[in-house]
């Protein structure tokens, strides 16, 4: 028995050594041939652009091999990007600001999704905004202010939908702190709305169109009213990846913007991919909001959100955005 301990130690050591060897050889291959970037996504419709960049060889043109993996939620992706397990990850601007306000150093690389300037004047917001606030068909709730004291479902607390719906309520003269927020996954939320267990549900595509096809009424489109035209979803990177792979990340930025432009011009093709990524029939995708992939992201896009979050009390003080926040 005593002899087996050094043997086991040796085995562990050998494993550890080979693991080190493995990772160092992978990163040294970054020289002049192909650099591998690990990218976290959350499996939503707008991931069609990064999928296009892979399929159409836009990354290859930049000497990149992009490997995507789906993370549970944006905060988990940010944690992985910060620790170096991922080189880049998808996050909307609200979790990004939460992270920055707690001193998690991140750099915005490119826009992943958002709203176009034309969308602002659209007649049918469900064609533009992939988020929606829904109530039962004959609910007494007629406007956001009526949600005071009611229960409203959100996919996660203090995240995008809670913040955007709060803004709707506040702008309508109500007090969002009187809302009883419930964390529910989209299918439970839809079911709870229809059975009357929650008074309103904030949902994301394709559940917005599903709810409407079941007779629920759209009270508001919180996303577009909160963010206005500009980038919402972002590709971000942690400090270690940026220092190590700056050139590759700049290549990622160029390839993503090429893919964003391609996706905007080939909506049908992008929607087919969205259907594949989200595992929904193409009709459901076509029935919902049409994604928009911006061609740039500015500090203003993020500053606007920053100010609103302070106004609503989700941030105590505005986050001081570093000058080099956007790559």
């Amino acid at each position: 028995m005593r002899r087996s301990i050094p043997a086991a130690l040796a085995a562990v050591l050998a494993l550890a050594l080979s693991a080190c060897g493995g990772s160092s050889s992978a990163s040294s291959a970054a020289g002049d041939s192909v650099t591998t970037l690990k990218v976290g996504t959350i499996g939503i419709g707008s991931d069609a652009a990064i999928k296009l960049a892979i399929d159409k060889g836009f990354f290859k043109e930049q000497g990149l091999d992009v490997k995507t993996s789906v993370v549970a939620n944006p905060p988990a992706g940010i944690a992985a990007a910060q620790s170096g397990q991922l080189d880049l990850t998808y996050t909307p601007s609200i979790p990004l600001l939460n992270a920055l306000s707690n001193n998690v150093p991140l750099t915005v690389v490119a826009a992943a999704d958002g709203y176009s300037a034309e969308a602002m004047s659209s007649k049918d917001m469900t064609k533009v905004d992939d988020t929606g606030l829904l109530v039962q068909k004959d609910s007494t709730i007629k406007r956001p202010k009526d949600l005071e004291g009611k229960s409203v479902s959100v996919p996660a607390r203090k995240a995008q939908l809670e913040v955007t719906v709060s803004k709707l309520i506040k702008d309508d003269g109500g007090d969002p702190s009187k809302v009883n927020w419930m964390v529910l996954d989209p299918s439970s939320a839809l079911q709870s709305l229809n059975s009357g267990r929650v008074d309103a549900a904030s949902l994301v595509a394709p559940f917005v169109s599903k709810a409407m096809s079941q007779g629920d009424r759209l009270l508001a489109s919180p996303g577009v009213e909160f963010f206005k035209a500009g980038a919402v979803g972002l590709w971000v990177t942690g400090n270690s990846a940026l220092q190590k792979e700056r050139k590759a990340i700049e290549g990622f930025k160029a390839a993503i913007y090429k893919a964003n432009a391609y996706a905007n011009q080939h909506i049908d093709e992008a929607q087919q991919l969205s259907a594949q990524i989200t595992n929904n029939p193409i009709d459901v995708i076509k029935g919902g909001a049409v994604n928009y992939w911006p061609d740039k992201v500015t500090t203003d896009d993020i500053q606007r959100v920053n100010d609103s979050m302070v106004e609503l009390g989700y941030l105590k003080t505005p986050v001081k955005l570093p000058a080099n926040l956007v790559l």
Binding site: N73, P75, N102, V104, R157, K158
Partner: peptide, 8 residues
């Protein structure tokens, strides 16, 4: 909630 809003 603390984990998701980076209150580590």
């Amino acid at each position: 909630l603390a984990q998701q809003s980076f209150m580590i």
